[in-house]
Write a protein that binds this DNA or RNA. Sequence first.
DNA 1: ATTTTGTTCTACCTTTTATAGAACAATTTT
DNA 2: AAAATTGTTCTATAAAAGGTAGAACAAAAT
Lengths: 126, 126
Amino acid sequence: MFLQIEPYSDIPIYTQISQQIIEGIANKDIIPGDSLPSVRSLAADLGVNMHTVNKSYHELEKKGLITIIPKIGAVVNVTREEGGVKGEQLDHMEKMLRPVVAEGIVYGLGLSEFELLIKRLMKTLQ
Amino acid sequence: MFLQIEPYSDIPIYTQISQQIIEGIANKDIIPGDSLPSVRSLAADLGVNMHTVNKSYHELEKKGLITIIPKIGAVVNVTREEGGVKGEQLDHMEKMLRPVVAEGIVYGLGLSEFELLIKRLMKTLQ
DNA sequence: ATTTTGTTCTACCTTTTATAGAACAATTTT
DNA sequence: AAAATTGTTCTATAAAAGGTAGAACAAAAT
């Protein structure tokens, strides 16, 4: 686990943890079937509270990315399903993208510039 | 002003106001030079506190989208500059997009699916 | 048998979000 | 000239969110 937490960021610590684990899954640093470290050990590694890590894990479980087995641990799920992306997840993506795209339009971004941004980010993250 | 506030949303009221004004600028419902309603009248319209609207306006000013002239009001700026998008704004867009793209990758989204989402949103918003 | 696991509970603190009212000086309207 | 409206600033209060802390529990792993 190579997570780096910025304590004074305006992004909550538990969100930083979630986002970096998601990036780890995106770039296959973490693959389906892998176990995440225990909330206690990761908390100790990061110098944060156990409950903060626990909150992040439950956020990831809510998104369907991991499964928390009580008294055992957290396991990364298979999320790249065969039959394509779930409609539920597409709706979620659209909800997250909408305010970002609106702001981009106001800045004068065109479709090609959006596509370039996405392409660059996919190359960076994948 | 056709703003609709959901008081019990997990999105702060002042953020809802900012986002909907940004959408108004994106779809040219509001154009550069237009004055925004006074913080008092908009607050009365929406049934929220004056200070909540004030916070939203200052957030929009921080993004460079409006100019607040003390004792006068708030005016929408020209944001689609001639010389293309500012690098500062592209950095900001990338920061906002990064966690969204990462999550999309984990869901199995490919470039073409991202592009379709963006295209659809641009059509809806513009 | 011991350690480690996630869970649950109480407790405390800071920051954020939101509301409320008052006062001010400047501007606009009447 | 008088009245109303403007954004700003100040104090105050309250709820929610974010974060830490410690303890206890039963189940699982060592």
